[in-house]
Nucleic acid binder design. Structure first.
Length: 294
DNA sequence: TAAATTTGACCGTC
DNA sequence: GACGGTCAAATTTA
């Protein structure tokens, strides 16, 4: 993928991460429906795994070809061990809405994921900011976000975003909980089932690049210098006329070496690196033999 | 006008 | 009592 520029690589990785998240959600939906005894077939589950593996291997390849540059999305991603799953719910269950105001447990024991990136990144989910707090001994305030679908779908995912004091270029994002929502902002993957032998699969990332807003660029507030605001706006390229991708079906996955062909019809954008632990997040159940798409 | 953001207050934890 | 996380009214934005 050497012919992919940094911007193109960044864009590709972004889309792949988005697609992978979507596939994970689909997987949970299928798993859930299976548990309820519905008609989701093992074949459907297998397909989901294949989609996940496809995104993962593509990300792997892109990452292998990326430079070791210090900027872009340098993810430090850690799922803390789930020491206890004390939730806000359990803590506040018996209270009325009024009584629950500010009711919470500190989240030191909660399962978290951390990322550091040069700019607040679009992780494919829709977030609503619900608070901002100056933190003791911290130069920059912490921003609190919850999933937009907290109330309509009961999604409990939240995240905190804060600029790194030692390196203000970087933003540290800590994710709490996992998305149980089916976000409409996630891309729709459309595989053409009518052309199994065609040379390309068509992936449609409808609305995958929402217009940048403060929601995705939380640092546009007056508390940040204008240079940061400008930078943040520049991070998100203007929406292109099409977010559709052509991915060659001549896609071969082996345990080693990995061979992936990926062609994109989109213009360049930039991404430098992705931590592999991020790639494998949520892929615990992918122990089945690797597959081939031909 | 609905949705998103801001911001001071509230409240549990340490 | 300090601190951090959340709520919710007020304000802004699209």
């Amino acid at each position: 993928m050497d012919n992919l520029g940094d911007s193109s690589r960044k864009r590709a990785i972004e889309e792949l991460l988005r697609g992978r998240d979507c596939a994970e959600q689909l997987s949970s939906v299928i798993t859930g429906s299976c548990e309820k005894g519905s008609s989701a077939t093992p074949f459907a589950k297998k397909l989901v795994k294949e989609v996940l593996m496809s995104f993962t291997n593509s990300l792997l390849l892109l990452n292998n070809n990326s430079t070791s540059g210090s900027h872009g999305v340098s993810n430090v991603q850690v799922w803390d061990s789930p020491k206890s799953e004390d939730s806000l719910e359990s803590n506040c269950k018996s209270s009325t809405v009024k009584e629950r105001r500010g009711c919470h447990k500190r989240r030191r024991t909660e399962r978290t994921r951390e990322k550091e990136s040069e700019a607040p990144i679009d992780d494919g989910h829709q977030w609503r900011k619900y608070g901002q707090k100056d933190i003791l001994n911290a130069q920059f305030p912490r921003h609190y976000y919850r999933c937009t679908h907290r109330f309509d779908q009961g999604c409990q995912a939240t995240k905190q975003v804060q600029r790194v004091q030692e390196d203000p270029i970087l933003y540290k994002t800590i994710y709490y909980g996992e998305h149980t929502c089916k976000s409409l902002a996630n891309p729709q993957i459309i595989l053409d089932p009518m052309s199994p032998s065609s040379t390309s699969k068509f992936l449609s990332f409808n609305n995958s690049f929402p217009t940048p807003s403060k929601q995705e660029c939380p640092f546009l507030s007056s508390s940040f210098p204008s240079s940061v605001e400008r930078k943040c706006k520049e991070e998100v390229p203007p929406s292109t006329s099409s977010n559709d991708y052509l991915i060659s079906s001549d896609l071969t996955f082996d345990s080693s070496p990995r061979q992936v062909t990926l062609s994109s019809s989109t213009p360049d954008s930039e991404y430098n690196s992705v931590d592999l632990s991020d790639v494998f997040y949520g892929m615990d159940d992918l122990s089945e033999p690797l597959f081939q798409l031909r």
